[in-house]
Design a protein around this nucleic acid. Structure first.
Lengths: 367, 367
DNA sequence: GCGCAATTGGCAAGCGCTTTCCCAAACAAG
DNA sequence: CTTGTTTGGGAAAGCGCTTGCCAATTGCGC
């Protein structure tokens, strides 16, 4: 005793299924007003719910848009998800969500699942990886995606094209100016900080991390400074925490022992984390070792995660309009020709450097 | 030139569609190994992707599970979503996500959409509301849900049954012991804090908020204390911030002017917020007015949001295993009979009071 | 009043898949 | 060698819906 069907409604209304279909779902041809009313009444009295699967089957589209993230509980991704969701709603579509822990292998199965469900478009939010161990999975992923595209799917990617993808015309990549913004952040920081810089990066091959690192180094160079040392660790809070622990030792050690070296430079480095959560993790670790921010070390993050904005000391970071990115990726040039898309990409909400307490050089006292 | 179909594969393999279906999708009858191989090869060479919509249509189930949240970017909901997602994956299903901003009206359309897509089950994560203005929408929502249930759908709800629902046997509600835990929190707080208590609540009629408030009052009573004043505000950070602003004035005013009143009691209240983000908002406001936590006022939250754990002063709160709740709601007694479910509900991971820095009464100095 | 176009409802053919029957072949038993 | 029993594959009937096409009705100009 499943839901009632269109034919049942039609029978009750005394019309053919064709007519019922035409009145209940936006068809070009609308039957006469009196018949329409009868059908609508019948539908209501049977509490008819159209079967979207059947509709999708015949129209060969599903009204679904698939979103792939590493972890939906990660605030970075959930912000993007909100944007994608909003875009979906605007288009009258529903959101299919898949999480992959960042592994291309799982992304691959997610794409396949979306393809099976005939998702109208799919958005990949997670950072691309070119680590050697992901090479095979990446190849499979791009194959799967290309196939999906060839069958008429559209895919939106954030930040980086999918490595190895070939059906370029189907891909809509939202440009995330990681490198530029990172450089800009460093530029501003270099003006107020005269000590050393130190980069807290994710694993090599993670494109987002690599971009930001490159930006940091470029900014340093532009400011006439030498490249900073890069500490590699996990791209999450735990990674930041671990690195923070060892950094704390170095900073404390450096301050204590190396009297010959310019005091200010070694004793109070500026840590450039490649994202906010790593920065937060590092701060937690530094604090647990008795260090204070910004007294003993400056630190900056990246992303400007909303939930973290009340963190003290307020974290200097780069604000990214993640929600807009999500929406853009989901819209994927839906509204307008490709020329418009180019323009759109140009006017992408671009992010903004936010200098806050965690990199304040004046006040040396307080937490 | 859409994706290739089963019949195409069958033709290529030189078998009937029936056979192809049998080998490519787990059927009871598995064709001979040599034929199976041929079919599989054909499928691979055509890069065949089964059409889940068609499959769903004939099997009249979709492999979809629908999740309804207020806002996916809210860490509370994204934690739950992670759990639901995990459960979905375990069952080999996909997650359909709908956000509603907490309005029953939008929840209603979400349920309808899920029903149309023939979601196998749906999970409602957002708090139920019994505010008078939501009465109609609630009725529609429960009607929609009941209909969905009658057609064989299962629904999992967190915390509270849907108001007005009647098809009880289809609902699986995971019990969130808000009241008990709130009481427990207050109990522990009452042991270390001798001043007044003050409740920072959400709008009246929001069940989660009301439960927690009731728990707070009950805990107070159990400790032999008078009921606390309740300040009503929005259930989010902004609400907490606003309330914090006015509270700050009162606290400052109280400390300055009312010398007759026992100093400790008025000057250093303990604020019991009904969730973490409100607490954080309040802290931000209090700080902006020059107050310090826990020096000038104690404060506790509820939920133990992960991203907020690095917040300083560490927020006393009630840890809720949100992810488990999500998983449980999604599993919905899938594994086992209803008797098991009862047991399961009993052994629900129950949450835990976390006393941290923000309610520390000893140290009166520092931030 | 007639012919024409325009309108309106119904028929039926699918969309891509599963599954129930049915049938032929293959085997065991008598 | 006949009969009963498996066995493995195919034919076909849908799942619930849309839509191209046709037939019937209507409206209109002349």
């Amino acid at each position: 005793m499943s839901a009632s069907t269109l034919s049942e409604v039609a029978r009750l209304a005394g019309v053919s299924p064709a007519t019922a279909s035409r009145v209940l779902n936006g068809s070009a041809r609308t039957p006469g007003p009196e018949i329409a009313e009868r059908v609508r009444q019948a539908a209501a009295s049977l509490s008819y719910v159209p079967n979207a699967q059947a509709q999708g089957l015949v129209k060969s589209k599903s009204g679904l848009i698939g979103l792939i993230v590493h972890d939906i509980a990660d605030p970075y991704f959930s912000a993007i998800a909100r944007g994608v969701q909003a875009a979906a709603r605007e288009q009258g579509k529903m959101l299919l969500l898949a999480t992959t822990n960042g592994t291309p292998a799982e992304e691959c199965v997610a794409v396949a699942a979306f393809a099976a469900r005939r998702a109208d478009s799919i958005v990949i939010a997670g950072s691309r990886s070119i680590r050697p161990e992901d090479k095979n999975s990446n190849a499979e992923l791009s194959a799967e995606l290309d196939r999906y595209c060839r069958n008429g799917g559209r895919v939106g990617v954030m930040g980086h094209p999918v490595v190895g993808a070939s059906a370029h015309e189907c891909y809509h990549v939202v440009n995330v100016p990681n490198e530029e913004l990172a450089a800009e952040l460093v530029g501003k920081l270099a003006k107020i900080h005269s000590g050393t810089f130190l980069i807290l990066g994710g694993p090599e091959g993670l494109l987002t991390s690599d971009d930001r690192i490159r930006g940091y180094q470029r900014g340093l160079k532009a400011a006439g400074l030498p490249p900073a040392e890069i500490v590699r660790t996990g791209f999450d809070r735990a990674g930041g925490y671990d690195a923070g622990l060892s950094l704390a030792k170095r900073i404390l050690g450096g301050a204590r022992h190396r009297h010959g070296v310019p005091q200010g430079a070694e004793a109070r480095p500026c840590i450039l984390a490649v994202n906010d959560v790593m920065a937060i993790g590092a701060v937690a670790a530094l604090r647990s070792e008795g260090l204070r921010i910004p007294r003993d070390t400056l630190i900056a993050g990246f992303d400007d995660i909303e939930t973290l904005r009340d963190f003290r000391p307020a974290l200097s970071t780069v604000h990214l309009p993640l929600e807009d990115f999500g929406r853009l990726a989901a819209l994927g040039g839906t509204s307008g020709g490709s020329a418009d898309n180019e323009a759109e990409a140009g006017t992408t909400p671009a992010g903004r450097v936010m200098l806050r307490r965690s990199t304040e050089t004046r006040a040396l006292s307080q937490t």
